[in-house]
Design a protein around this nucleic acid. Sequence first.
DNA 1: TCTACATAGATGCAACTGCATCAATTTGTC
DNA 2: GACAAATTGATGCAGTTGCATCTATGTAGA
Lengths: 147, 147
Amino acid sequence: MPSPDAIKAWARLMRVSRQLMESAEESLKEDGLPPLAWYDVLHELAEAGEGGLRPFQLIERTLFAQYNVSRLLARLEADGLVEKLAVADDGRGQTVRITARGRETRRRMWAVYGRSIADLVGAKLSADELGMVSALLGRLRHPPAAD
Amino acid sequence: MPSPDAIKAWARLMRVSRQLMESAEESLKEDGLPPLAWYDVLHELAEAGEGGLRPFQLIERTLFAQYNVSRLLARLEADGLVEKLAVADDGRGQTVRITARGRETRRRMWAVYGRSIADLVGAKLSADELGMVSALLGRLRHPPAAD
DNA sequence: TCTACATAGATGCAACTGCATCAATTTGTC
DNA sequence: GACAAATTGATGCAGTTGCATCTATGTAGA
């Protein structure tokens, strides 16, 4: 039902993304660093700054499942990488803020993760080709984006 | 350390592939069908024909971890979708062959999975663009391939 | 205000994954 | 042939994920 072209593109997408992700994950593990999911959260929180983020905002940004974020934050808090603050105008919620220790961990993770990205993607394609990949994949998003 | 272009392409690759995979997985679940991993194995076994495949060959083809394949095959066997045969010239090993029931399940999965691929990828990009995606992603593989 | 409903986040339980290791067999070397 | 090393596949255990559900708080309508 899908064209052979579509099947091939799909297969490549699934295989290559899994392979690259596992490779990056492995590099982090070799250096005794936490998994990629932790980086995603620390990254979002670092960008958010002192104001922090509500868990549901993290869910929107990372696309992780709600229960996953809930437990991931519990682990990050247990490791002292983030702190949870009650939020004034909503008794249900909380604000999550990255700690100094969290920023330090993120920095050390980026040293390894960034190198993986550079090696696995940056070194394999030209700037033009990288732009083309971004643009094409952007059109597969939901909702699609062309930038 | 990686260029902004590389970071963006990486981020798109990770997000889009996860999003599409989850979408396809969800469609299967909605129809009461097994997860994608089952399809991958049934697909390889169907292509292999009557001769079947050794588990380690499945590992090479699917890139799943050894323990994962071992347990996945146990579940497939429990469901009667594959059968395990002792192999004559290697007392350690076994040959795994797809059953008629397995072929039927694969067929029903493809009806849903194929539609996902057509909708999520085939309908979003032209044939040329699909070819470009395949070619670019192929260069990210290890080892790289240009086809 | 009282009630129904929506939203934020946590959690018990079952299934699955990753890791390390195991047993069984084969292969290579002397 | 005997023994070390490699290969094939399975499995115990701990950690994680997915699902469903729960509690607590907020919002809207009569």
